[in-house]
Structures are given as structure tokens and as C-alpha cells.
Design a protein around this nucleic acid. Sequence first.
DNA 1: GTCATCTATCGTAAATCGCCGATAGACGAT
DNA 2: ATCGTCTATCGGCGATTTACGATAGATGAC
Lengths: 98, 98
Amino acid sequence: MDDATMAGVARALAHPARLQILHLLAKQTECRGADVFGELPLAQSTVSEHIRVLREAGLVNATPVGTRTVYCLVPGVLEAYLDAVQDVLSTCPSCQRG
Amino acid sequence: MDDATMAGVARALAHPARLQILHLLAKQTECRGADVFGELPLAQSTVSEHIRVLREAGLVNATPVGTRTVYCLVPGVLEAYLDAVQDVLSTCPSCQRG
DNA sequence: GTCATCTATCGTAAATCGCCGATAGACGAT
DNA sequence: ATCGTCTATCGGCGATTTACGATAGATGAC
């Protein structure tokens, strides 16, 4: 994963509301929009924007089901990001975990 | 690590220049400012700002040595962040790595 | 002291972000 | 067809970010 992509994922993670959304999706594996909207103390449009950011970063998938939308966490990008962050630490000889 | 802190670290990582700086510091374990400034295609003041962001996030330490400054990567926060991101994946039953 | 070097900060302009209300678009129910 | 519900997008506002040049402050060399 190149630095630009990594920075993009980091930016998507760089907001408490978006982290909270990820936590919700991780817990439930399948989440209707109304559930997400209801959990956050923000306007529906704002939450929708946050979801859009997460989708554009490849972290969340949205599938329309009737009049609603079901969101779920996509692990792939997050895993790659995790590896990329881990690589930074691994490169550092004096930063090995004990 | 709470969501606000996590978002703060992610914010610090959310720029290619800052990632490049982290890579430089990870490689060399000790890095004089001039080395960092010289590696990036940005004005010295801009790089200094990026370093400040990384320092404020607790990712980088700066120690003045004579007229220069030596920077180094601080693994602690990055490790905690790594764990926090990992936790998101771990919470998701359908996201276990194979 | 004087000069050169290195780093941090200031001031500023352009771009982006985060938030909201309003509205559009899609679908099911009646 | 009409209504109500759910989600996405638009427009706009204030705040924040990123970039730069200019400059200040600190230290070593002479």
C-alpha cells in the first residue's frame, strides 16, 4: 500500500464519528442505515456524509435493500492499512515490541 | 485508546508527507532535521509544520543537539493505535483473517 | 562580538472539512 | 396514483488545514 492510499485511509479514520460508525458495523456485521443514523448525535445528512467518506476509502460497503441500505465493514483495506502501519514499526530497529 | 485519541493519531497519519517522514525516522532511528528537510520536496517551514503535527500526536520525539534537532520515532502511541485498529477488526465476527 | 547555519514560528492565501437544513430520488404500502 | 419512509446530495457557513515566504531565535565557528 503506497503512502497516498495509506494517507487516504488514515484520513477516513481521522474522525470520532467515523470510528464510531466502524465500531457499529463491526459489532453487527450488517447494519441498516436507520440504525447508524439513530446511534449518532448528528444530523442524518452528516452521518450520510461520513458513511460516504468511509465508502470512498473502501472501508464500508453499501447494498440497497428495498428502500433502505444495508452497510457492512469491508475488512480488506483495513487489513492492508494495518499491515502498512505495522511495516513502519517493523522498519524501526529500536521499536520492536517486547 | 478512546476514539478521540485514535482519530487524532489517524489525522497525523493522514498525509503522505508525514508518512514519508515517519518512514525516514523508522529507517534511521536518529535523524537530523536537515536530513528530513532535504528528503521532501517541500519548503523547510512546511516540513517543520508536519513534524510539529507528528510531535503533537506523540509519534515523534525531538531533542535539540547543539544548533540542530534530532528526531526519532516514538513507538508507543503507534503501537497503541495499531492495537486499536486491530480491535475494530477483531470485533467483527466475519472479518477474521485467514 | 560577528557571521553563518539550523529550526521554529508568524502571517497569509487557497483549499478542504464538518456541520446543518433543504431537497431530490427511490422504494413500499395503501 | 398518492403518501410516507429512507437515503443521498446540494448549497452554504464557519473552522481548519496546507502551503509558502519571511523572519525570529538559538547555537557553533571565527
